[in-house]
């Protein structure tokens, strides 16, 4: 009698546990708190990597003038990796435009040609205070970028407070970017 009860109950209990784990994962995915495409950044609460890149000037060529993150020391800054060849970067252009009124934005053109970047900015607007050209993507690797667009929020000491991979949608702005900006007093 008790033997039959055990063999009867055990698969049921196992199924119950599986259903619970699956249900929790599904709930997380649907509510947006679990997103497998959002990898954690090791730089959060750590200083941003040293970055020194040739600066894009609007004529479409790069000058000897360089761009670095330390330029923005003393105030919060958004660092946005983008590219003219990246479709989601076009989609987030209005969001960056809006953010540029609240915080300084440093653009890093990832694996892009300066003439293409310039054409992109002419078409979709230029929310950036400065643009560095990361032609070979090495700077992207330094920052742990795994796909454009990616946005990092740095505090006034150059410490990374937040990384978002993917386009800045309204939902992302409201749930992550705005609260983080407010926490920095910006």
């Amino acid at each position: 009698m008790s033997q039959m009860r055990l063999s009867f109950l055990l698969p049921l209990v196992a199924f119950g546990i599986l259903a619970l784990v699956g249900g929790m994962a599904l709930y997380g995915t649907l509510s947006g708190s679990r997103d497998p495409t959002q990898l954690p950044s090791v730089f959060v609460d750590k200083p941003a990597p040293q970055t020194n890149l040739p600066r894009l000037v609007q004529t479409g060529s790069t000058t000897g003038n360089n761009v670095s993150v330390t330029m923005f020391q003393g105030k919060p800054v958004l660092v946005n990796f983008f590219a003219s060849w990246c479709a989601p970067c076009r989609a987030e252009a209005p969001a960056l435009e809006m953010l540029s009124k609240r915080v300084a934005i440093l653009g890093i053109a990832y694996k892009d040609r300066s003439e293409d970047t310039t054409a992109f900015l002419q078409q979709y607007g230029n929310p950036f205070q400065a643009i560095g050209m990361d032609a070979d993507g090495r700077t992207g690797i330094e920052w742990g970028v795994y796909g454009v667009p990616e946005t990092y929020l740095l505090d006034s000491n150059g410490v990374v407070k937040l990384r978002h991979a993917g386009p800045l949608t309204r939902g992302v702005l409201e749930t992550t970017i705005f609260p983080a900006l407010e926490a920095l007093g910006s």
Binding site: L39, P40, V42
Partner: peptide, 8 residues
């Protein structure tokens, strides 16, 4: 690479 991309 771990320092940039983490254990992942």
């Amino acid at each position: 690479l771990r320092a940039k991309y983490g254990d992942y």
